[in-house]
Design a protein around this nucleic acid. Structure first.
Lengths: 197, 197, 197, 197
DNA sequence: AATGAATGAGCCTTCATTCAT
DNA sequence: TATGAATGAAGGCTCATTCAT
């Protein structure tokens, strides 16, 4: 496939992001995409041939774009500080509704599940992302323990547990709704379970 | 609308349950329901006039049907035993995919969210269910602490934290997939955090 | 056909009258009739097998029920008085919208026209009614001329002309709307064309 | 909605004209229009989104298309000649069944009436058309009186009266049916009422 | 490359009519 | 007689996708 205009393709991805963030995956129509992209119906098909294709491209771009943000920390930062920063990022993600693909991703993976599509571990973005976060957190905990700042018997399980909790907070925020205070309370509770006062 | 045949109505609800469990909420069409119910297109409208109405009825029936199952425990059961039973029930729920409305409910509430529908606390079944579970767990923890079986500083936060974790396990099971072993590991981890050996 | 319950049949006709008066002919559904008649869907079919059949029965009953009302006049009444009374009745009919079958009848005959149904003169109620009115009016005019009250060269044409005008007033009332004053003006104009001052 | 192809839109209007002329307003379905227009179901929706919208456009086009025909008269024409021409046009309209929107318009306005829609005088095409005709006729009569050709006490009322009569002839033609001879007779009768021999 | 009119399948809904009770 | 649940055809409308330009 010739490269076509990568610029235009990126533009479509960028605009579609907002559509999926707003309406989820299942409910999105080609018309929604077309309207958001200021492109013709036929034009869209030159770049993508289905909503699913657009969606996976949006996810891929989202993954690629990670790690760009994030506060910088001084070299002298303690593991507690780093953990606090990690939690702050998670909080942002939990409460970020307008611009989050999360529910669309849930719907997408659910739709794959029910159509019996088996994902290779490599393609299961949701799982990969989860495991990456667990790993980061696990290492952070190990560092903290070594530094004498944290207490933890089983860093792997603790990290996994924390990430499931955060997952629970995310889905709750998008369905039942959740207050910022409730999120804070939970994140603080988690940190207190680790940090030695 | 008169009550028509309650038997048929219940039959529709029962069959629709399976449809929503399988396909979620957003993707379900009247045709799906009609096919599953062995009824005519027009016939369905004698009982329900929209998918939302059917879904609401399915949820209501589901709530009403709760509490029927559940293992009995001897009067002499320790709080640890009760906690283990609670966790066993949760595990069943986490892994129960074929017959679970959970994702459909998530989609339903998500769709309400994005259409700006504000739910009264009373109607937010998801929230109510969550809070009920938290309360049960909290009381259980308090009992355990009093009985000298559990150690816990803050039963309320701990209970809330555990339920968010379980929520995380549920959504993960329905989207990324999760192994029974992984669920066991998490539930055991949670219990170990409470029980004094 | 056994007579069934004539009482019930009449009841259906009576109630249906109101339905056709309100909604015309084309727009009426069996459901409308059933609701108005406090009868079951199936029950209705025991008496009538189509909307058209009901409608023709309603018309027939309407015709049969004519002549019942109408003010009595003293034997000494002048033809002018009788003409005034005739016009008064016409006015009532022109402005009677809520309880008038007129538009439904128009729609019915129009629908017959477009389906190529040729009516025998005998069955063309609209024509018959028109001609009857013309005849009455014609005789009235002749009487008036003989009595020296009216001036008229051609009673037949005059009567026909007046009835077309009244027809015009009726249809205008039901489509564009018309004020009572405008009707009065026209009827007075017509009478002045006849009466010798 | 952008203008799309005006050519196609006009084509739809033209074809729909025939549909409404043949079947009236109430009985027309989207399918009827679609079939008449040799267009797809979905295609029609690119131009119009409801039958009412199509009908309104058809009427508008009809109004816009008026005045194109009509015989020319020599400058020396007498008012009697002009009146005769006016009547000739009316006769054509009265008897023009195949290509006339009249009954559809009646149904449309009737349907508005029964659904309580209040029309601004501006939008009431039927009324406007009637009043315009009255005005033309009134002026014609005044001219005739001045020219010593007509006798008339009250040109306004006479004109109004004549137009109601013509309205009566129109509706009769479309429901009961009317012969050309009968129309001629009436029109001649009307003219004789005006012209001084 | 790009457009957007056009298609036709498929969804939701309503209606006249039937039929077991 | 009488009921009203049930049916399936038909109508209105939307959507993914194609194609001539």
């Amino acid at each position: 496939m010739a490269e076509k205009s990568t610029k235009k393709r990126d533009f479509i991805i960028e605009r579609s992001y907002a559509v999926f963030a707003k309406r989820g995956y299942t409910a999105v129509t080609m018309q929604d995409i077309v309207s958001a992209c200021e492109i013709s119906r036929g034009g869209l098909y030159l770049y993508f041939t289905s909503i699913e294709e657009i969606f996976t491209a949006v996810i891929a771009a989202d993954i690629a774009g990670r790690g760009e943000s994030g506060e910088a920390l001084p070299a002298s930062a303690s593991t507690s500080d780093i953990l606090a920063l990690f939690m702050k990022e998670q909080k942002k993600e939990i409460l970020r509704k307008k611009k989050s693909l999360l529910f669309a991703i849930y719907e997408y993976y659910f739709s794959l599940h029910i159509t019996q599509v088996k994902l290779s571990a490599k393609d299961n973005f949701l799982k990969k992302q989860f495991e990456t976060a667990v790993l980061i957190l696990e290492n952070l905990i190990r560092d903290g323990v070594l530094a004498g700042e944290f207490f933890c018997d089983d860093p792997r399980s603790t990290a996994t547990n924390i990430m499931y909790t955060i997952e629970g907070l995310k889905i709750t925020a998008r369905t039942s709704g959740i207050s910022e205070a409730a999120v804070d309370k939970q994140l603080i509770y988690i940190m207190q379970g680790l940090i030695i006062e």
